[in-house]
Amino acid sequence: MGEEDEKQQVDKHNWGSEELSKVSDTREEKDDLKLNTDALGNLFNASAPARPKINIKKEDLQLIMNELELQEGTVRAKLIETNGDVREALRSLCGL
């Protein structure tokens, strides 16, 4: 009964939406990989996601956010890129 209601909504103007809804289906993913467990263990040991820590000063962050009207994430990413060098980050964001 619920299904019928759903179907009625899919009129000729909305035929595409039915196709589209398949995109967001949560089907169970394929589960058939063959893997060498030793190699796997090595990979995990080698590449545990440890990110380098870069010290970012709050006032640097604030300065650039305010001067260039940017979001924190953008500025933070740029400061990480410049290893926390505020001058370089500001110049780069100004296109210099």
Partner: peptide, 29 residues
């Protein structure tokens, strides 16, 4: 560990972080 998308997602993550060697190593495996 046996699911494709798990692997692909992990490779994509390294790639987007420009950690190309890690991405390629996992891909090779």
């Amino acid at each position: 560990q046996t699911q494709r998308v798990s692997w692909l997602g992990y490779i994509v993550a390294h790639h987007l972080l420009k950690e190309h060697n890690l991405a390629l190593g996992i891909m090779a495996e």
